[in-house]
Write a protein that binds this DNA or RNA. Structure first.
Lengths: 212, 212
DNA sequence: GTCTATAACATGATAGAC
DNA sequence: GTCTATCATGTTATAGAC
């Protein structure tokens, strides 16, 4: 029985995603990707109009499952703080489990030209980012929602992006890769902050001048 | 004063740093770097024992001025919260002013093999990281100092690392690149958190409570 | 002594012919 | 598939210019 076109597409994409993640868009040749996918370079153009379309489809697909998870964490009528907690736990779990997508985006940020960056954002991040920003508005109306959303992304993504370097920093321990521990830390930091407890007594609060 | 024999070393490094930042270690050849520095490939080996030493010297030098700044922000006997504030303001200022070093490290994280990562960490980050961790211990003894330190780095570094993509996200505004605004946001988030104020009073920004 | 150019070597990847 | 030519690249050796 002939394989359905979508399974063939899926097979190609699943082979090609790690390749893009490893080497980046520019350094992956269509010939190379073809070998990986088990077809010839020319056959690619039967499934995708060009290299960029192949790449976008790969990025989109790499994010598809994730986006469902994230959206699920954001939905529902739980209190906003609870939704935040769900979001960050799922996010950390995804990032720790499989670093390929993280690497893919890491590369895109570094090497992507403006046009492709815009395409990737529109195809993959725009809607999810807007959703998280909505949660931020609900959660902390007196914060700039864009900056707060960026901060949430930074706290989670960068911690795992930098994993390869983190190993060599003084004070690192194996549990710092554990998504439950990392997520709990981030949630607590976001909700409580590190400032002196306001119900506490001896608060040596800020009394300094501005720097510079 | 002696006519510093390292003048030409400095000249070489200043030419070579942007090259490594742009293309990464592996994709910069000694010949290419030589052309950029105005000498030939063989001549490099009078100044540096090899490519890796050249690279390490470049990374070290790119970080030298910064490390002084960071250390200055951490030193002194100001209250810890004010030192944190100084640290983050200077960090954001550096990151926004000149993206070359950010890019250099971004690349190293992505492409660096284990050996080189360890060398870079030992030569550049280890001590500064330990200092910031010291501040974290002082500031919030009930947090994991390593995770808190990572969070501080993530909040600042990642915001500027992702600048190229941030432009295309919904809700972005020019002021989100302004280091003063970004730093103020990060400091406030770290200190206060987004949770409900425990004294139930007003929710004005952190800056409003400062005696400026 | 300091810096540089030139040539050459060793290795690894790539491409093409058989 | 195998063998081989070719090329790119890190590196070394040597000698010349200031």
């Amino acid at each position: 029985m002939r394989p359905t076109p979508s399974t063939c597409r899926n097979r190609i994409l699943s082979k090609v995603i790690p390749l893009f993640a490893e080497k980046g868009y520019n350094r992956v040749t269509m010939r190379e990707a073809a070998v990986e996918a088990g077809i010839t370079a020319g056959s690619f153009y039967h499934h995708f109009p060009g290299k960029q379309a192949l790449y976008l489809a790969a990025v989109k697909r790499a994010f598809a499952g994730r986006a469902r998870d994230i959206r699920a964490a954001l939905a529902g009528d739980a209190p906003p703080a609870e939704r935040l907690r769900n979001l960050i736990h799922r996010f950390c779990l995804q990032l720790s489990r499989d670093p390929v997508f993280t690497r893919l985006i890491h590369r895109e940020i570094l090497d992507g030209d403006q046009g492709r960056l815009q395409l990737v954002v529109d195809a993959v991040f725009r809607d999810v980012f807007a959703d998280v920003m909505g949660l931020c508005r609900e959660l902390a109306p007196d914060f700039d929602p864009f900056l707060l959303c960026m901060s949430i992304v930074s706290l989670t993504v960068h911690h795992y992006q930098i994993a390869g370097m983190r190993k060599f920093l003084p004070g690192n321990r194996p549990e710092h890769d554990n998504p439950d521990i990392v997520a709990a830390h981030i949630v607590r930091l976001l909700i409580e902050g590190i400032g002196p407890r306001r119900d506490g007594a001896g608060t040596e609060s800020f009394q300094g001048d501005l720097p510079l």
